[in-house]
């Protein structure tokens, strides 16, 4: 009983239950899900969204929202393709430049939504259009194929038998975990999201903190963009469609409160896996693409709903528990 209760109280229980539930449902619907090949596919495919979800989580923790990850993925994928193929810049330097571009795009979002005092929802909604528009502009609207032979191994390679994308994801999540829990800027992110005016009166630079969160978000989306190029050996202004929704879904299913201040990064990874398992399940069952979008949208509403109704729900649950006792 007490172990059960402790588990239900901990913040990781909800996301874990959601993931297990998704796995059970999908494996009941098709016997192909649990095959080794499919599971390894899932673990590869989850990486871009899982990494973009890091940024989404940080921004949501400060009480903001970032709608631009998909557009940043598109723009950075095209930029990488142009740098490496059209301009012939060595692939290593191209990647560093694209990471810099990601930082810049995130910084712009952060700058306008803090010092510019425009709500982040509006700034990143605008960025969603502008960044993807820029991607169309620099590519004339057509994808760039066969970027570099050096790229595919970055995605399909492995280290000691472990797929590389899995290593990227684990390393980045570990770094973010350290950042959020063991550094002052990380703590500031929770403080600003928890109570902005108290944070200001405690001497925390609120705008600076939000700017850091947005800049990291830009960086994480650009890593997602690079991984996408590595996976497909191409850049396209159409890449990353829906990534923002999936990233926000991962954070929210992971228990990050949209009001800010509450959430942990490990749960976001569980949330990202849940999203990917659901997508994979719909694919395996040959569900049309339109229904995939509808399902994902519904899951987001449900996850946010659970966040909003949490207090009421937990009261109901504990009432049930205390009655049965």
């Amino acid at each position: 009983m007490s172990i059960l209760r402790r588990f239900f109280r901990s913040s990781i229980s909800g996301p874990l239950v959601a993931l297990v539930l998704a796995v059970i449902l999908v494996s009941l619907s098709t016997n192909r899900f649990l095959s080794g090949q499919n599971l390894s596919n899932v673990s590869l495919q989850v990486s871009p969204v899982a990494i973009a979800a890091i940024g989404a989580t940080l921004v949501i923790l400060t009480g903001g929202i970032d709608l631009s990850p998909g557009a940043v993925v598109a723009l950075t994928s095209c930029a990488l393709a142009i740098f490496a193929k059209n301009l012939g810049i060595p692939i290593g330097i191209s990647i560093v430049m694209v990471l810099g571009l990601g930082l810049l795009l995130g910084f712009v979002n952060g700058f306008f939504s803090t010092y510019g005092r425009i709500p982040s929802f509006i700034v990143t909604l605008a960025a969603l259009g502008i960044y993807r528009g820029l991607a169309f502009l620099i590519t004339n609207g057509s994808p760039i194929f066969s970027v570099s032979p050096a790229l595919n191994p970055l995605f399909y390679g492995n280290l000691l038998g472990i797929p590389l994308p899995l290593i990227y994801v684990l390393v980045l999540y570990f770094l973010t975990w350290i950042f959020l829990n063991y550094t002052i800027p990380g703590r500031n992110i929770y403080a600003v999201g928890g109570n902005e005016s108290a944070a200001q009166l405690s001497g925390i630079k609120v705008n600076q903190t939000r700017l850091i969160a947005f800049t990291i978000a830009g960086l994480s989306s650009s890593i997602a963009g690079i991984l996408t190029v590595a996976q497909l050996d191409s850049g396209s202004p159409n890449y990353g469609a829906g990534t923002e929704l999936e990233a926000i879904a991962a954070a929210v299913i992971g228990g990050t409160s949209l009001a800010g201040g509450y959430g942990n990064i490990a749960s976001t990874l569980l949330g990202a896996l849940t999203v990917q398992v659901v997508k994979n399940g719909l694919n395996l069952n040959m569900v049309p693409a339109s229904w995939r979008e509808i399902t994902l949208g519904s899951i987001i509403v449900l996850a946010v709903g659970v966040d909003m109704w949490r207090a009421t729900l937990s009261e109901r649950f504990s009432q049930i528990f205390s009655r049965t006792r």
Partner: peptide, 9 residues
Amino acid sequence: KLDGLFFNF
């Protein structure tokens, strides 16, 4: 409550 405390901690 409004300006002093962090309820998330």
